[in-house]
Design a protein around this nucleic acid. Structure first.
Lengths: 343, 343
DNA sequence: CTATCTCGCGCAATCGATTGCGCAGATGAT
DNA sequence: ATCATCTGCGCAATCGATTGCGCGAGATAG
């Protein structure tokens, strides 16, 4: 447990001043080749590594990047985390993982922590109802809103074209001949929930299909809600021939429920899942799903954050990048077997 | 982007010395109630938070805990990460996520980074072949080996009873009547791979079943290998009636392959998966799988690491905690349809 | 032969929190 | 009345890296 060596140790070893050591390591031009070489060699030999705390103190900011996610077990977020971690690693930054469970209190605490650590910036999937102080802290630090968007903070936002996602799903089902389509999504309190539902609604309207509000379920975005929503939908006297889901977790729950209820997919019910993960290829004959460009989005937002932090956070108008989702057609959707009711 | 306020700002505001502010915030007894209250109020009002960099510098160590994992997208590790993140949050530590992709170079780089950050300690799932310097750095910092165990570093190890895991799987299949059982696992270069295979072998031996080495596949622990291994197994002239897998990723690949090949599960082939995740309940009639006490293990190891770091890393003999896996019986295993060959 | 540069390096201050030591004033004990 | 305590607070040093300034020596120009 002895402390790592410092510049002072190198300086003592070579009978140089600490300044010279510092400048050598920083590759300053005002140092002779020979001295630099000797310093480098000694640093290597002693196993010197800079003390990031000291550097952070001097510079006023650390090299820490925060990642504030509601749930790291969610495949969507862990995929994003991987991409973000890669970016950080490439540029020698530390990635601090903060999991909120969508709890505003935890979110705030993590934000305070990152501020305490003088983080360079952070990438946040904002919780549904951020605390007032959370908003204040967000405004005080360079950051990027990821996927979800909290309109109360007018900052940069990297998201998915959520309406387009549901448009794809709905269009696919309509093209197959479905007319009675249910929707299971997350609460409209979240921007993504709102936009997805909107995309669904509009696509049906454009196709001249009336929307039965009893088939539209929007609630919390966990597996349990998905299960319950599907249960309610299956209990409808006039069942839909297809369901679209607008969230990865609830998609799992809904599918689970349908299977447990013995509903045949896709013959009795076409099912469009949300987000993609290796395991989703398995479900039945594979799950038709809306795939999101997670990696690309994560990489883009991290790059952006670095640029922003480097430029001292001076971006004029907030940047807004929306990537397009795509439809992965697999075995859980098909032409409806029951003849759709006449309008 | 203005800097957060410091103790100096509070001191100036109240016309006190910085020392008094520091002691007030640290709840030192040598400060009057009134002064303390005033300081607290001012700190709150100004939005003061300690500068962790400065504190780290003073104390010689930061409050950072490193988590070095091969793959954060793996459900096993992300579940562990969640539990570890919770522990860190509770105690006000920062969790730095380092993803190695099982690459010794990245592993070393992350270890250097953590050293640079003067991390309090770290939890590591060691890569297959750690670099020599990696071993040196491990010995120099308090840490816990998680799940996998690198014998070259004689440190504390929190793992799974890997042999027991495969014993459960094999026993289950044997009890169902299977006699020709294939094994798809990770390389024996990793401790867990070795132990799992050993557990499998011994259980079959104890049941008096001869092991056909052509049905034993041990390789890299990714999805692709699982797929390839299953392919090879299905190509055997005398197919097995059951397969056990000894790794989450390869389990997915293997299952995927079997399904793609049109093998009926469990009628043609009983399949025991590895590790558990919400999505695994879906596969066909659900996947019989070996569940690991990830959360418990992660929590225990994090707690241990904190205690160890607090006691200055002075633990006499390395601690070794092994938790027991369990069998989750679902729909992918059944009594074999083909009559087993006579021995 | 001197004034001016440049090169290579050292001095010292700085970032913010923490802590041993010391210094007043108040209280208590003798 | 006098000294020992105790209370409440300030001074100053420290942790390690970084950087503006300056200094001496050698090189170049005038």
């Amino acid at each position: 447990m002895k402390r790592p060596p410092t510049m002072k140790d190198i300086a003592a070893e070579l009978e140089l001043s600490v300044s010279t050591v510092a400048r050598s390591l920083a590759d300053s031009p005002r140092i002779s080749r020979e001295t630099r070489a000797r310093v480098m060699a000694a640093a290597e030999r002693l196993g010197y590594v800079v003390d990031l705390a000291a550097r952070a103190m001097r510079s006023g900011t650390s090299s820490i990047i925060g990642l504030i996610v509601p749930d790291i077990r969610n495949d969507f977020y862990s995929t994003a985390a991987k991409a973000i971690a890669d970016c950080c690693q490439e540029r020698g930054h530390q990635l601090v993982l903060a999991v909120t469970d969508d709890d505003p209190k935890l979110e705030l605490e993590h934000l305070r922590n990152l501020r305490s650590a003088r983080a360079l910036g952070f990438i946040i999937i904002p919780s549904v109802t951020p605390a007032p102080e959370t908003l204040r802290l967000m405004r005080a630090t360079p950051h990027v809103q990821f996927v979800r968007h909290c309109a109360k903070v007018d900052s940069d936002w990297f998201g998915i074209e959520d309406d387009e996602a549901m448009r794809l799903a709905a269009r696919h089902l309509i093209d197959l001949g479905h007319r009675r389509i249910a929707y299971i999504g997350s609460t409209v309190a979240i921007s993504t929930g709102r936009d997805r539902l909107e995309g669904f609604r509009r696509t049906l309207q454009e196709a001249g299909i009336a929307i039965d509000d009893r088939l539209v379920k929007a609630g919390s975005c966990d597996t349990e809600f998905g299960f319950a929503a599907m249960q309610a939908i299956l209990a409808e006297p006039q069942r839909p021939t297809a369901v679209v889901t607008a969230g990865a977790r609830m998609s799992i729950g809904a599918y689970d429920c349908a299977r447990a209820a013995g509903v045949a997919i896709p013959s009795e019910l076409s099912f469009v899942g949300f987000s993609d993960s290796p395991t989703l290829r398995w479900c039945g004959n594979g799950l038709t799903t809306i795939a999101l460009p997670v990696r690309e989005l994560a990489t883009a937002s991290t790059d952006f954050l670095f640029r922003k932090a480097a430029s001292d956070g001076q971006s004029e108008r907030p940047c807004r990048v929306m990537l397009k989702p795509s439809l992965l057609q697999r075995g859980s959707t098909a032409v409806p077997q029951r003849v759709p009711e006449p309008a």
